[in-house]
Simulated assay, not measured.
Amino acid sequence: MSRRKAREMAVQALFQLDFNAGVTSEEALTAVFSEREGAISETTKSYAKSLVEGTQSNLAAIDNYISDLSREWKIDRMAGVDRNIARMAIYEMKYSEERLQPGVAINEAVELAKTFGTEDSSRFINGILGSIVKNKQLS
């Protein structure tokens, strides 16, 4: 299983869910999976699904973490890709059954930001997540 690939697909699905009211997580994931060339293992699909559903289930609490530390930007004014990468990283650090160490989660999020975001996204993601780790209890 490629967790990086699962995270990439999960971010794409979360982005779709963020901007398309009425789309279910299952529909968003199906669309993302169908766009991928080649076979995607069931374990990779399963991990992507758990990331999407877990992030969605904890969205209000996750958004509170982000809002508390990014006073200059309201959550709805953040770039959609950045917002969803940060949400998923926080889910993996705080709520996932297999919690990631903050350094690993931040590194993965920064790499996703480099792939999907703008030139400034990786610095923004690193700053937001670093602030959360420094200022909040993640356990």
Rank of each mutant, 00 (worst) to 15 (best):
I106D: 01
M93I: 10
Y95W: 14
A113L: 08
Q56G: 10
S57R: 07
L112R: 04
L100I: 01
G38S: 04
T30E: 15
V11K: 03
L138N: 04
E111P: 00
L129Y: 11
G54T: 05
V52Y: 07
R99Y: 02
G22T: 11
T55E: 07
G22M: 13
S96I: 02
E92S: 11
R3I: 13
E111N: 15
A79C: 04
V23G: 05
N126F: 13
G80D: 12
S70M: 11
L129D: 06
N126G: 01
S121C: 04
L100M: 11
N126W: 08
L29H: 06
D76F: 14
E27K: 15
E108C: 04
I125T: 07
S96T: 00
Q137A: 13
R99N: 05
Y95G: 08
E119V: 14
L17Y: 02
A13Y: 02
N135P: 00
N107M: 14
A31R: 13
A105P: 03
T43G: 01
R83T: 05
G130R: 03
Q56A: 13
N84I: 03
K45N: 10
A39T: 14
R77F: 12
E108L: 13
T118A: 10
F124E: 11
R71M: 10
A10Y: 04
V110I: 14
T55V: 10
A60L: 05
I62F: 07
M9Q: 05
D82H: 11
M78Q: 09
L138S: 08
I66P: 00
L69E: 09
D63L: 15
T43Y: 06
F19A: 07
R3D: 12
E37L: 15
G127N: 14
E72H: 07
S67P: 00
G80K: 12
R3N: 10
G127Q: 11
A21I: 06
A31C: 09
Q56Y: 07
S57V: 00
S139L: 09
M1P: 01
